[in-house]
Simulated scan of single mutants.
Amino acid sequence: MDTTTQQRFPKITDEGLEDLRRRIGVTVGQTVEPWCHEATRDNIRHYAHGIGDDNPLWCDPDYAAGSALGGIIAPPSFLFATNRIISGYVGGLPGVHAMWSGADWNWHKHVRRNDEISSEARLKDLIEHQTRFAGRAIQQVYNVRFYNQSGDLVADADSWCFRTERDHAREQGTKYTALRDRAPRRYTDEELQAAYQLYAQEEVRGGTPRYWDDVQEGEALPVMFKGPMTVTGFIAYAQGWGGLYIRANKLAWRLIDVHPGVGIKNKFGIPDCPERVHWEEEFALEVGAPGAYDYGPERCSWLTHQLTNWMGDAGFLRRASCKIRRHNPAGDMLFIHGKVKRKYTEEGRNLVEIEQEARNQDDELSVLGGGVVELPKRA
């Protein structure tokens, strides 16, 4: 790949940052319609299937009706589909790349079938970093609050993107130098079968309560497998989540006409969305990534999937965190490990704190996270 090309993309400027700082604390208007206004049966199922989660509590009305919850609820991470800012739709610094990089979530209520979700968002902070990936980078943090049709606070979360200069990441970034020069990984049938065995053994706790009394500090959660990564899988997630900039025909033109920085010309000279780094290898390499790669909210949802499988129908996910450490390009496998860090009581709740990390097939750290689960106690 020729890395001697002239500057193609806008840079981070002090003037742009100053303009963006003036937005801190200001409520963000309805810049773009959410993918899902309502937690319908199909919207919930599409999101769950987009992360490879077949828990019948989200997907099977008959099962859910017979559960203690009395009907379908949404997986906690479904809320990514109800607000685009929580998922990485950032304002300011037009033409500067944005990579979703983490979130801290708090849940207060279940999202039930046919709940109507509204949200409000504010820019919370801007933090400057020096990175191996792209040199100067700006961590852009938003706070988002989610409400149901009764006005009840369902959840709140901070999420952040890193704004990076595409030219610098491609030409001077050192994080993926060795990986870009490496031949594509090709797995043997034996390697694939060993990984697929984790799918065959995946346990959804379901209606069997996991009691707080029985949990031991230091105990491991079953390893959760995700992958092997394919562009097909990334698109399956976008089908349930909605994406940030995926539009067709007139709607694509309208978005780019209003926000020209969103339209980056492809090999045909046609302005197309920056989100295509997730399915277009050529463009992913242009922004300094090692290849077409998974979505950040998708990976966060994989971590919460491990927690909801483990806690069962009677559990409630109170908090979760996710910090992205590297891209998962197509061809990668991901192995999510979890361990009970502590168990404790707080305000009458019986809680278990779990720490998580996920590594790829080469034992490279992909993501750090964790959560706090509320469990029932034996009578």
Rank of each mutant, 00 (worst) to 15 (best):
Y293T: 11
D294F: 10
G296A: 12
G296W: 14
E298L: 13
C300Q: 10
S301A: 15
S301H: 03
S301T: 12
W302E: 05
L303K: 00
L303G: 00
L303S: 00
T304L: 05
H305W: 00
Q306G: 01
L307D: 00
L307R: 05
L307V: 02
L307T: 03
T308K: 10
N309D: 14
N309V: 00
W310D: 09
M311Q: 14
M311G: 01
M311D: 04
G312R: 08
G312A: 07
G312M: 11
A314Y: 05
G315K: 08
F316Q: 02
L317I: 05
L317V: 09
R318P: 10
R318M: 14
R318I: 10
R319G: 07
A320V: 02
A320T: 08
C322T: 09
C322W: 13
K323M: 11
I324K: 12
I324S: 12
R325P: 00
R325V: 00
R325D: 00
R326Y: 08
R326M: 12
H327A: 13
N328M: 14
P329V: 04
A330T: 15
G331Q: 01
G331M: 02
D332W: 12
D332R: 12
D332A: 13
L334I: 09
L334T: 10
L334R: 13
L334H: 08
I336K: 00
I336T: 15
I336V: 15
I336E: 03
H337C: 03
G338L: 07
G338S: 09
G338R: 13
G338Y: 03
K339W: 02
V340H: 08
K341F: 10
R342Q: 15
R342F: 02
R342I: 04
R342Y: 01
R342W: 08
T345N: 06
E346S: 14
E347H: 12
G348C: 03
G348F: 07
G348S: 04
R349M: 09
R349Q: 15
R349A: 15
N350P: 05
N350E: 05
N350T: 14
L351M: 10
V352N: 08
V352C: 13
V352S: 10
E353N: 13
I354H: 03
I354F: 05
E355A: 14
E355G: 11
